Amino acid sequence: MEVRTIKVFTTVDNINLHTQVVDMSMTYGQQFGPTYLDGADVTKIKPHNSHEGKTFYVLPNDDTLRVEAFEYYHTTDPSFLGRYMSALNHTKKWKYPQVNGLTSIKWADNNCYLATALLTLQQIELKFNPPALQDAYYRARAGEAANFCALILAYCNKTVGELGDVRETMSYLFQHANLDSCKRVLNVVCKTCGQQQTTLKGVEAVMYMGTLSYEQFKKGVQIPCTCGKQATKYLVQQESPFVMMSAPPAQYELKHGTFTCASEYTGNYQCGHYKHITSKETLYCIDGALLTKSSEYKGPITDVFYKENSYTTTIK
């Protein structure tokens, strides 16, 4: 009895394709271990004539594949690729409408935090270190965002349907971005203890939790000093293409032309909904596939993004 075979390709990165001759009487799992086709788990399936010449994702289970996976995804987590594939199996079914010149995501599976993050990423200057993220990001900007969303979920250790947080998501993504040249110098002034300067680099240099107003941050924000008295913390120097200011959701007025974009969060910790506000020729609110415009805006804002380049204080 002759062994019926077909020729397929296996890959971990969709760049390096490895030619395989597979036995049609055995499952993919018996031949390769966990195997995925377009995100779908085909591990328990036997090869079919229609699979001839198709590319299958496999887990990096030998040295060659491990090197290829690390170079593309910059992670050695053995569960990463499987999590990416199972997320992709959902995100490829989502709709990605162009809204006001940006790629958004039609609401499904509690994905409003991903839509808000995706919209924000198209408006701030950011370059990702893992080629996987950078490639998928370019495709997302062009309207094909399924891979990018699935990668975000995998890097953030999230599953489809789980509630997510924009600030946490951005923080994970910033860790995989090139923020080497970003720098922030802060000064804390206390009447009792004097003053202390701190220099922050990388992710810490672009994120701040405690106030939404970048102007206020430049002037000074009140913080408790270690001595128990009130101290003032203010920005001395900022070198970065953008800054992200966050605070627990509270009524906040966004003035046209003073910011790049913002995240609105309605609801409580267990259950809520994100919308995205962007400042173009007027203010726009993007909620999944829905767009509304207004000249002014007041609502429960939790993150505001500002364009920056270089700032030095005039406070002496």
Rank of each mutant, 00 (worst) to 15 (best):
residue 2 E to R: 11
residue 5 T to N: 13
residue 5 T to V: 11
residue 6 I to E: 04
residue 6 I to D: 05
residue 7 K to Q: 13
residue 7 K to A: 13
residue 15 I to S: 09
residue 17 L to S: 07
residue 17 L to Q: 14
residue 21 V to E: 14
residue 21 V to K: 14
residue 25 S to V: 10
residue 28 Y to P: 06
residue 35 T to Y: 05
residue 36 Y to I: 04
residue 36 Y to L: 04
residue 41 D to F: 06
residue 43 T to G: 13
residue 43 T to E: 13
residue 44 K to V: 14
residue 45 I to R: 13
residue 46 K to D: 12
residue 54 K to D: 11
residue 58 V to I: 11
residue 61 N to Y: 14
residue 64 T to R: 10
residue 65 L to Q: 08
residue 69 A to D: 08
residue 73 Y to H: 04
residue 79 S to C: 11
residue 85 M to T: 06
residue 86 S to K: 14
residue 89 N to C: 13
residue 92 K to Q: 11
residue 94 W to Y: 04
residue 97 P to N: 06
residue 100 N to E: 14
residue 105 I to L: 06
residue 106 K to N: 10
residue 111 N to C: 00
residue 115 A to G: 06
residue 115 A to W: 01
residue 123 Q to H: 06
residue 124 I to S: 02
residue 127 K to I: 09
residue 128 F to R: 03
residue 132 A to T: 04
residue 145 A to K: 05
residue 146 A to P: 05
residue 146 A to H: 07
residue 149 C to Q: 05
residue 155 Y to H: 02
residue 157 N to I: 03
residue 160 V to F: 02
residue 162 E to Q: 11
residue 162 E to H: 04
residue 162 E to V: 04
residue 163 L to E: 12
residue 163 L to D: 04
residue 165 D to E: 15
residue 166 V to F: 12
residue 168 E to I: 06
residue 169 T to M: 07
residue 172 Y to H: 11
residue 174 F to G: 03
residue 176 H to V: 07
residue 180 D to M: 08
residue 182 C to P: 01
residue 186 L to R: 03
residue 191 K to D: 11
residue 192 T to A: 11
residue 192 T to H: 11
residue 197 Q to K: 12
residue 199 T to G: 05
residue 207 M to K: 08
residue 207 M to A: 07
residue 212 L to H: 05
residue 213 S to M: 01
residue 214 Y to E: 01
residue 215 E to C: 05
residue 218 K to G: 01
residue 218 K to R: 07
residue 231 A to V: 03
residue 231 A to I: 02
residue 234 Y to I: 11
residue 235 L to C: 08
residue 237 Q to P: 01
residue 237 Q to D: 07
residue 239 E to Q: 12
residue 240 S to H: 01
residue 243 V to G: 01
residue 247 A to H: 07
residue 249 P to N: 02
residue 252 Y to M: 13
residue 253 E to S: 10
residue 259 F to M: 02
residue 264 E to C: 07
residue 265 Y to V: 00
residue 266 T to P: 00
residue 273 H to K: 00
residue 276 H to S: 05
residue 279 S to I: 01
residue 282 T to I: 09
residue 283 L to N: 00
residue 293 K to M: 11
residue 299 G to D: 04
residue 300 P to S: 12
residue 301 I to Y: 00
residue 301 I to R: 01
residue 302 T to S: 08
residue 305 F to Q: 00
